[in-house]
Design a binder for these strands. Structure first.
Lengths: 205, 205, 205, 205
DNA sequence: GACTAAGCGAGACGGTACGTCGCGTCTTAAA
DNA sequence: TTTAAGACGCGACGTACCGTCTCGCTTAGTC
């Protein structure tokens, strides 16, 4: 989480003193935030609105998230936290398509797309948010790309010197380009085309 | 300009009564807006701030731009209006690299990067802005990609069925991915790598 | 007024630019404040409450009064501004009783009492308020005492060396003592008793 | 103390079970409160502030004082509890001056002045506080005035029908008038002047 | 010496109000 | 008729305290 205050690496002080925060509250807040985001877009995400909808005091929100931005990020993280691994299908193309297509679907059909659109400016601009997003989301995605690429190399489908980061950018850059700038459709045709281009570009010589 | 109100198509006979609008004002406003955007990020772009910095009354701004969003878009359009064509070098790779690298440099070194970061959320979200941006910027870029790709096809460097839109996304998606999400460096290495991957992917079979 | 911003002593800049403040608004605000003060005591005097009751935006209040304290003082000043002079009755005792009794009545029967009770702590504590109160209210009262005492001396009812300030304190101290501390009744018996004691104390030897 | 909860009127048999409250805590709390009051005025007296300064939990304070008001009153009572009697000097003027001057000094030089300034609004406004203050402080003072006046009458220095309450108000009204409203100096000249006026007013005919 | 009830520190929580910032509109007088 | 100046309504921000409510630990007593 974004502002887990006392995450002291090892040996916690046995237990935290004081009344523990209700985990239920946490959920309620994030749910309310997500709904507002969906219903009224990013301008509809106000701390006061979330408080009202969650039936929670504004202070309770500020106790957990230093600012509106942090709350927004938490919503995002909360939605993205489960970047499940793509299983080994012994089919590099299939795996990559599955991977890219999952992102396309999430961004194109769920709230995630709107959330990302709304937050991208802050993600690019506010240092704390940028850092958190890169550490949690970008890094996870690159790691998964690496796994898939490594499998592809092992199978002889990709060149051994394939650059993971560039691979990640080539595979997902077009997806976000559509989401943010061109307004292009996020449909099921996108992933195969991108993946095919990628495979052709990095086929073993 | 976005909402030049009195653009009297025909000839305004009878001269204008009253105080004439200062054409200089327009520039001053956009300059101030651009500077604020650069100095303090999106949150620093406020109508009141622009008015103060430009030494202009808020009313004057609202007479030209219906809302903050429109002003923001005007700033962007103002900066991007000159998408010059890439000259024919009889070198497909060179032309593409020049094209992509120009974007990389503009986004990486000038205010343009910050402006784009700041506006991308609105660009993706506010219909009017999205429309305007696509019509003016995205479309221009795709057209230029088409020209370059066509030249490449003619030279036998690219497959005849190369998809312009996908080409555009593969070439620029990674650039914006770095600008918006990963924070990757926008340096001179990026363009060649992206272009090489693109060329490999769409080399004639 | 407390925060009349541009009170430049002489030659104002001809006229103020911009939309002039609606004097009606001023009145509405003070009225609302006074009513709240009366209905719910000092804890009932909240800027938000006044705004709601006056049908005015909070900002409008803050544009006129820097803080809640200033608003409160304005209410007080507004109520007290008309310290009318006591007419010459050719009767020192009668004049003094009329003077003291008027204060007793105002403090005992009108909102003024509650207002004073509520504000006295800030009046004693916040330098700006203290200063303003002394300049506008205390000073006016002392001046009036001086007038009455001078007339009394001229008539031979009072000693020539009567101290105005002490006179003021002896005449009004008991009144405020009851209002603030002892809760003693502010009735029509108070003024004559205080004045008689005062006259006896300062009778010519 | 104001709200010693378990003051079981009759005999609490069976002793109290459980850990008894630390009497030391009581002191620490009142000390902290007094200091805050002195350092930052009434607005500086916050339960949270007292808790922090006293190194005590908020709960501990609320276990002893139902509200902030009660705490404030406790501070005041704590400071005022020792209204020592003025010894018989066989000198009415001297005794009265000593009495008034002691109040002047306490209010002028010790924290007591600031505490009174800070609390006077609540003292005048909150019924419970008003009651307690009158019972404990005002009454004690009037009783002492009565003793002194009675001695003065016995000595032939004062008229037999001198009104104790009015005497009290004439003697102390000016003192509080300076403390609360006029900001006049609380110095050693005040007591003699007030007492002399009082004696002159109530000299036997 | 273990049990038990209260004291106590810590901090979450729902509230109310604060004072501030920015938006977009409206009203004035001057240029 | 444009412009500068600024009042105004509005919505949200983030903060400060209030008083209440768990928590779990500590510290007396009594059994």
């Amino acid at each position: 989480m974004v502002n887990k205050r006392s995450q002291n690496g090892e040996a916690a002080t046995l237990v935290a003193p004081g009344r523990p925060p209700r985990s239920e509250t946490q959920t309620t807040i994030l749910d309310a935030a997500r709904e507002l985001l969906a219903d009224h877009g990013v301008h509809g995400l106000t701390v006061e609105g979330v408080a009202a909808r969650a039936g929670v005091a504004k202070t309770t929100i500020y106790r957990r998230y230093r600012s509106k931005d942090e709350l927004a990020l938490a919503v995002l993280i909360d939605m993205v936290e489960d970047i499940a691994a793509i299983p080994d299908l012994d089919d590099t193309r299939g795996e990559l398509i599955a991977f890219v297509d999952r992102a396309v679907k999430i961004l194109g059909r769920t709230l995630m797309g709107r959330v990302m659109q709304g937050l991208v400016s802050d993600l690019a601009t506010v240092p704390a948010l940028a850092q958190a997003f890169r550490d949690r989301v970008v890094a996870a995605r690159v790691a998964e790309v690496k796994r898939l690429v490594d499998r592809g190399i092992a199978r002889g489908d990709l060149r051994a010197d394939t650059d993971y980061e560039l691979a990640n950018e080539l595979l997902f850059g077009p997806v976000y380009y559509r989401l943010f700038l061109s307004g292009g459709r996020l449909d099921s045709k996108l992933a195969p085309r991108v993946v095919d281009a990628f495979l052709a570009a990095f086929a073993p010589s």
